[in-house]
Amino acid sequence: MKTSRFFLAGISAVALLGTSACVTDPNTGERKVSRTVLGGAGGAIAGGLLGGVIGGKTGRIIGAAAGAAGGGYVGYRMDQQIKELREQTAGSGVDVTEVDGGEAILVNLPDGVTFATGSYTINQTFRNTLDRVAENLTQYPNSLIDVYGYTDSTGSDSFNQRLSEQRAQAVADYLTSRGVATSRIRWQGFGEDTRYAVGDNNTAEGRALNRRVEIKIVPFDQSDVNAAQQAQGN
């Protein structure tokens, strides 16, 4: 029997760190450390809301399910989506990994090619890559999508917080403009919050890793829809 994803939010961060620090490449079967889960700044945990989604799943699943296919969404299909995302973004600098113990997909959009320094306007040269990501998301409609924005520690806290929000919103708006249902998408900026740092802010390389936008894809299936409807009814 499949363990419901609703219980993931209650699992401790330490336990999830043990299962998510190493991920399995669905194309090769190789186990490797995910740079989107472990960072140089004290092994911080990244990926926005580990084991959860913005605003909780119950209402969002019900809303998203109305426009989704409604069929099963486990195992092979999720592996297939990861494989296709990697193929569609190859050579762009985008990193695609499993997170939340294999229950979600994280698409890491790199600094520099996605936005110019200090800007939240998506670079024209990167829009073709985002078009392919949007096409993939519409092809696999049974999922919730969170978009997270992060910065490094350079500059004021308020500026970095606002910039992270603007960048996350810019990516979310772009995806919806390319046909991804708005009911599936939420966005949030985390600024320079060190809890989500994946690099050392004392080095140029670490700061570059911390300046990023992540798209988290959380698949759901019919059992999740049923559980959400039951929870809402209660």
Score class of each variant (00 low, 15 high):
I145V: 13
E192S: 14
Q139S: 10
W187V: 07
L130I: 04
V198K: 06
F159H: 09
E135D: 07
S164W: 13
L163H: 05
E165V: 14
T182C: 02
A168V: 05
D193F: 14
I185G: 02
Q161H: 08
D193R: 15
D131L: 05
Y140S: 02
I185Y: 02
N160V: 02
R178A: 08
S143R: 15
T121I: 15
N201K: 13
T203F: 05
T129M: 07
R132T: 04
G155C: 05
T138P: 01
V133Y: 00
R132L: 12
N136W: 02
Q166S: 13
R167D: 00
W187E: 07
Q188D: 03
L175Q: 10
N202D: 07
V113F: 11
N142Y: 05
Y140L: 01
R167F: 03
G179E: 13
N202C: 06
D173W: 13
A181C: 09
T117V: 11
G179D: 11
T138N: 05
A170R: 10
S119P: 06
A197Y: 04
A181M: 12
Q124V: 06
N136C: 12
P141L: 05
T194P: 00
N201E: 08
L137F: 12
A197S: 11
I185M: 04
V171E: 04
F126C: 06
S164H: 11
R195A: 09
L137M: 09
D200E: 05
D157G: 10
L137I: 06
N202M: 09
A116C: 04
S164P: 10
Y148H: 14
S156V: 13
R184I: 02
V180P: 06
Y196L: 06
Y148F: 10
T203R: 06
T154Q: 10
A172C: 09
V180G: 04
A116N: 09
T194I: 15
R162Y: 12
Y120R: 14
R162W: 12
R167C: 00
T176H: 14
R178W: 00
V133R: 00
L163K: 06
W187T: 06
N202I: 05
R195W: 03
G199I: 04
T151A: 11
A116K: 11
G199F: 13
Q166M: 11
T151L: 08
N136Y: 03
G179T: 15
V133S: 00
T117S: 10
G112N: 07
V133L: 07
